[in-house]
Structure formats: structure tokens, C-alpha cells
């Protein structure tokens, strides 16, 4: 057992890296799903597209890391803009099932579109960092993995500042609390919805770009992570950004510990077990504040 504990720092490090990727995807989804109430099953494909946008920037244009992330942000913002206007806005206000089905369709469409245009082969995003392991004590890590955690911290901090101190951020939060009251108070709900959707797309894309430096990108890359993102959003509580950050990191750590100490085959199951448990005990999610309104 002592030898097992020696591995703990490595497991925690692994979990932190994976959790950081989850946080960005889940924060994006909590904006779209939690605040706009769009059940976007294509969110994983947004993540995948971000990875390919990074391939475009780093491989085809030969850009260094930061400009590549800028390319990803621009591409994903434009993409989010189009999708919101063309797919989800026309369906807004109608039966929410329509939007769910539409998002499924979008997911299949995007996957096959990429399969036809770029093929099934995994593609690597070049980070420009030196390859190889960095050893700190008993823990091995790579520069790319450290960059994922650092970039997540910066992006999430920037997002929290925007939400707290800008007018748009305040409008967004008011929208999450009550759209009707927000509208009465002079918030341009349509515009803020569009911005929210675009921010969500950009976050998913950035996550995809960062994770693809380590895990490469393929048309089906987003299939599993979208399920993880839904787990995080539901467990954290719909629309809770701070909750999504905490639960995202926690899920990464828990998965890593489960894979390490219990068996790798259980790793993708544990999140779903947690969801069932949380929904049974605390249906609004761990950090969800909203209760029924009279």
C-alpha cells in the first residue's frame, strides 16, 4: 500500500490536467445549457472544431501557440455566431425538443463534414513546446500539460472578471436568474443570448485546441467529452460557473484516482454514478441556487 501512495502525486497531477480541459468545456456548456437552456449535444463537436482550428493555425499557417489560440477564438466566435442565428434562434421559444433534435443533427453533420473533408486520421496540434518529460520529484509532466492548466486558469479568470465587472457580464447573470425580469430591466435579451452562445463556443473551441496538443484531434474527438460536460453541468447546478469550475476539476481528479486505484475500466462510469447520486439527493445540483419559484 505504501508504494501505492507514492503514486498519489502523479495521479493528482494527471487529474488536474484532465480536469482543466473539462472545466473549459463545461463552463461553455453551462452558459449555453444552464443560462440559455439550449440542450446542445453538438457541444463536443465545437470542442473538436476548436482542435481542427488549432491544426489550421499551428500546422498550416505555422503560427506560434498564442496566435494559434487567437485564430481558434476568432474561428469559433464566427462559428458560434452563425450557429446561433441559423440553428438555435429560429427554434427558440418553441418546443425545446426541437432544439435538442437540431443539436443532435448538428453533431452528426459536423462529425461527418470533418470526416469527409479532413478524414479520420488523428491530427496533432503543434504547441512549439519542447517535447519530452519534465520530472519534478516523483512526478512526470510535459510542458504541454502544464500549459493546459495555466491556460485554463487564465481563461477562466478572464471570464469571471468579464462576468463580474462588465455591463454584458451583469446582463448575462441577470438573464441566468430571470429572463423576464432581465428584459423588463432593459437587457437586450437577444443580443446577450447571442454573446453568451458565442462565448460558450469559444470556450469549447479553446479547450479542444489545448487538449489536442496532447491528445490529437479526430472528427469523433468530442463524442465522449460532451457527456462529461453534461455530467459536470448537472452536478454543479445549471448555470453555475463557479460550480462548473470546481466540479470539472473534481471530476478530473476523481477519474484519475479511480483509474489509478480501482481500475481503468471504471473511469468513464464514475461520473455517471455521481450524477445519479446528486440528482437523487440534491436535484438542483451541488452549487445550484435556484429553487422553485412561486
Amino acid at each position: 500500500m505504501v508504494s501505492d501512495l507514492v503514486l498519489l502525486p502523479q495521479f493528482l497531477t494527471n487529474g488536474l490536467v484532465i480536469g482543466s480541459g473539462y472545466v473549459l468545456v463545461a463552463v461553455g456548456l453551462t452558459l449555453i445549457f444552464g443560462i440559455l437552456h439550449i440542450v446542445n449535444f453538438a457541444h463536443g463537436e465545437f470542442y473538436m472544431l476548436g482542435g481542427f482550428a488549432a491544426v489550421l493555425g499551428s500546422q498550416l499557417l505555422g503560427l506560434p501557440a498564442l496566435p494559434t489560440l487567437l485564430v481558434v477564438a476568432v474561428v469559433m466566435a464566427a462559428f458560434g455566431l452563425v450557429v446561433e442565428r441559423v440553428v438555435f434562434r429560429p427554434l427558440g421559444g418553441k418546443d425545446p425538443t426541437n432544439a435538442i433534435i437540431a443539436s443532435f443533427g448538428l453533431s452528426v453533420l459536423l462529425q461527418n463534414l470533418m470526416l469527409k473533408t479532413v478524414g479520420a486520421e488523428p491530427m496533432a496540434v503543434k504547441s512549439g513546446f519542447a517535447p519530452g518529460a519534465i520530472q519534478i520529484g516523483n512526478v512526470f509532466i510535459t510542458a504541454e500539460r502544464i500549459a493546459i492548466v495555466a491556460a485554463m486558469a487564465v481563461i477562466v479568470a478572464a471570464l469571471l472578471l468579464v462576468l463580474r465587472y462588465t455591463w454584458t457580464g451583469r446582463a448575462l447573470r441577470s438573464l441566468s436568474e430571470n429572463p423576464t425580469v432581465a428584459l423588463i430591466s432593459g437587457v437586450n435579451v437577444r443580443r446577450v443570448s447571442l454573446i453568451t452562445f458565442v462565448i460558450g463556443s469559444v470556450l469549447a473551441g479553446l479547450s479542444g485546441a489545448l487538449m489536442s496538443t496532447v491528445f490529437m484531434v479526430q472528427p469523433n474527438s468530442g463524442a465522449l467529452i460532451v457527456m462529461k460536460a453534461f455530467i459536470i453541468v448537472v452536478v454543479a447546478g445549471m448555470g453555475s460557473i463557479e460550480g462548473a469550475i470546481i466540479v470539472g476539476l473534481a471530476l478530473g481528479l476523481i477519474e484519475s484516482l479511480v483509474a489509478g486505484y480501482m481500475g481503468n475500466e471504471l473511469r468513464d462510469i464514475v461520473g455517471f454514478l455521481i450524477v445519479i447520486l446528486v440528482l437523487a439527493v440534491r436535484p438542483q445540483g451541488l452549487f445550484g441556487l435556484k429553487t422553485e419559484r412561486s
Partner: peptide, 18 residues
């Protein structure tokens, strides 16, 4: 064991290393 979609093997390889 790993799932076909899995791309992160650091935890399982940590055990292998040990």
C-alpha cells in the same frame, strides 16, 4: 482495460511504471 475512445493514459501508465 481502456475504452476505445480514451486518449489519456497517464494514470494507467503510472501504474505500469510502478
Amino acid at each position: 482495460t481502456y475504452n476505445p475512445d480514451e486518449r489519456d493514459f497517464f494514470s494507467v501508465l503510472t501504474k505500469v511504471r510502478a
